[in-house]
Nucleic acid binder design. Sequence first.
DNA 1: CTCTTTTTGAAATTGAATTTCAATTTCATT
DNA 2: AATGAAATTGAAATTCAATTTCAAAAAGAG
Lengths: 149, 149
Amino acid sequence: MKPDRFKTLISEEGLKSTRQRAEILDIFLNSTGHKSLAEIHAWVAKMDPKIGYTTVYRTLKLLTRLGLAAERKFADGETRYEPTHEGTHHDHLICLGCGKIVEFEDDGLESLQDRIARGHGFKIFHHRMELYGYCGPCAHKKTSHRRKG
Amino acid sequence: MKPDRFKTLISEEGLKSTRQRAEILDIFLNSTGHKSLAEIHAWVAKMDPKIGYTTVYRTLKLLTRLGLAAERKFADGETRYEPTHEGTHHDHLICLGCGKIVEFEDDGLESLQDRIARGHGFKIFHHRMELYGYCGPCAHKKTSHRRKG
DNA sequence: CTCTTTTTGAAATTGAATTTCAATTTCATT
DNA sequence: AATGAAATTGAAATTCAATTTCAAAAAGAG
């Protein structure tokens, strides 16, 4: 997102465009995603140590409200933020070995959930689907350690 | 579960069978499931006000370790416990209106997740799938309020 | 430039989860 | 039934992330 677009977007909300917000947005949008508040703050602080944790917290909440960020909470309980420009809807594969998080999208899953919901008389608005296991490299490491077990 | 079976199970673990543990287990197994620690403690305290919150907490952790309980964390962030005698594997439908939680099991979902994981080189060990929406009655209420909207 | 409103950042607060520790209870052994 | 080591209990303390408070600083409309 261009700095000017953010300025416009934010003033349309009746909010003020500040150096802190611009810096945090810039760093956040260029991050890989699924970062915790502490991680994002660490990055921000590296660029500008004057920016406080609270401001990063509030800015991420703001970005979430504006639809630029999404909050996620996986099994480890940490709140993570991902930029939403990464494609609108997706679910996650999470490696129990190295912690890698992979996004995926599956139409079959979407229709299956609708079918399940209908079967129970529910109308679904959103869902959460996370698959926990081992990615290729980690699965391989585990297997080779067990060799001849 | 019979009191004696629990006594046996617990002594096999090298642990001690106490009145508190027996009472908590009894109340827990006869609950509807998906109850928070505070809710379970409230029930327990109703039967025996001397039993402390910490003991309920520790006992539920213990039951989880023994495989008699399962911890769940839905979108509201509260940790909930369900007795595992309710059928081993299932996922959840959660009503955004009344909070009702319905369990479901779907073989198609299981095979689909395997297919997705394989496509990304993952080996899956467990997953989390929650569908959020409105149950029949709540969906109906919402619609009728909107009538002629 | 001025004034009002918003934002910032450090510190304080909240609230659930977890740990501590002295007193109590269990239970294997007398 | 009595003993004593080891586990358990429960109240209080601690932890830790999330959130709020509040005085000082910054934004931006006029």
